[in-house]
Design a protein around this nucleic acid. Structure first.
Lengths: 221, 221
DNA sequence: GACCGTTCAGTGATATTGTCACCCAAGCCA
DNA sequence: TGGCTTGGGTGACAATATCACTGAACGGTC
């Protein structure tokens, strides 16, 4: 018998009626994916709605010119609903999802997703709410890219990327991809941060020294 | 008896089973809105899904700093599905929809929308496909803002805004809002276009003189 | 018509960000 | 040791954004 406990980990699913929970569990399969795998994107179309139990997926876009920008991340306890819509669109869909850690997820096949949408008002609410959150994420990205200063944006990103420890194993190029800018820009801003005593740097590693100051910069929106 | 003809004008709705069409029509009401009205946004939350019969709605976002950027437009024959999701999200939702022309639309109340989602696979497909299109629109905006050149973006926007006539009644400030940039930037680029013979300008008006050249610039992506 | 207020557009100076073309250093490995 | 790859630094310059103005164009009013 399949484990049903995972449902409770998802905000919005715990209110599902029992029969729907049973249906959800019956039609789902647990999958494990190692870090660094492309779970969807050009050339890897998924047929499943994923509920992330553990780990994190980064969704990013590559422009025609070959430059990248991170759109959002799917964390444990969230689902990757945008893909369900993008599956149906026959337009070229340039975003891709990459596991940043080893990932455990529950996969709901397309058909089961549709049956759940038909049978449960609560499930529909869950899906639409998840959509709304992603869309507001995208709105935020647009706002940041269009009107945000990069030092402010970078400060914010450093804080969220280094939420566990003060050590951050990342390259300047990766940070540039986070914000959709160029490596040189990141290098200069980080050197400025270093001069101001916010961080320490070594090859491939950044150490946050003064979180309060960084936070202050980050929300001088 | 209500008119059912409008359904056929929407790509994706014509395949609905007859009973669903009847349901859709029975629960809908036609509304007319004059140009320049905010149909949704902070302070004007809609409880309806709108199908646009005539006219055009511009969806734009105002950042904290007070600057605007246009996200996308809803044209006749399209629906404004993103609002259905954003209604449910209790997060601050900063986008607003403004009618650019007089608009005729069919409104489906929230409850009816939910019943249709429950009862019709085709309707669900329609909704998800509409979502997907908007989301790819947003991805495109992000790509443009992050990596696009202003002159290229402006050229493209001039072409799409002046799709009917070569005359365009708009101010530099409005064009700046289109692209999420500053008026001065638009002024300088337009002056450059003028020098190159692409356009002619007078106060509040732009005339496209050389569409081919503008188009060539616009897709030198 | 003249006057006034508002909106629209032009411009120079300066700051920020992006691009290009390099260089050098650190780590890896034969 | 040398060579290779990756990560990072830097100067010069281009593109874009911001600031602080200016004046022109238009709409009223008297």
């Amino acid at each position: 018998m399949a484990d049903t406990g995972w449902i409770e980990r998802f905000q919005g699913l715990s209110t599902l009626p029992e029969p729907v929970k049973a249906q959800l569990v019956a039609e789902s399969t647990v999958m494990k994916v190692p870090a660094g795998t492309a779970v969807f994107g050009p050339g890897a179309v998924p047929d499943n709605l994923l509920f992330l139990l553990n780990g994190r997926v980064r969704v990013q876009q590559t422009s025609e010119s070959g430059r990248d920008i991170v759109l959002y991340r799917v964390e444990a306890g969230e689902s990757c609903v945008l893909t369900t819509a993008c599956l149906l669109a026959h337009e070229p869909y340039s975003a891709e999802g990459i596991t940043e850690t080893d990932v455990t997820a529950v996969a709901i096949p397309r058909g089961a997703f549709d049956r759940l949408m038909a049978s449960s008002k609560e499930f529909r609410e869950f899906v639409l709410t998840a959509y709304a959150r992603r869309i507001t994420d995208l709105f935020r990205v647009i706002d940041d890219v269009a009107f945000g200063r990069i030092d402010v944006r970078l400060a914010g990103r450093l804080l969220s990327l280094a939420s566990e420890s003060d050590e951050l194993a990342t390259t300047h190029q990766q940070l540039a991809t986070e914000l959709g800018t160029a490596r040189e820009v990141i290098s200069r801003v980080l050197n400025d941060f270093q001069k101001r005593g916010f961080i320490a740097q070594s090859r491939g590693k950044i150490t946050l020294l003064d979180r309060p100051k960084i936070a202050q910069l980050a929300d001088s929106a």
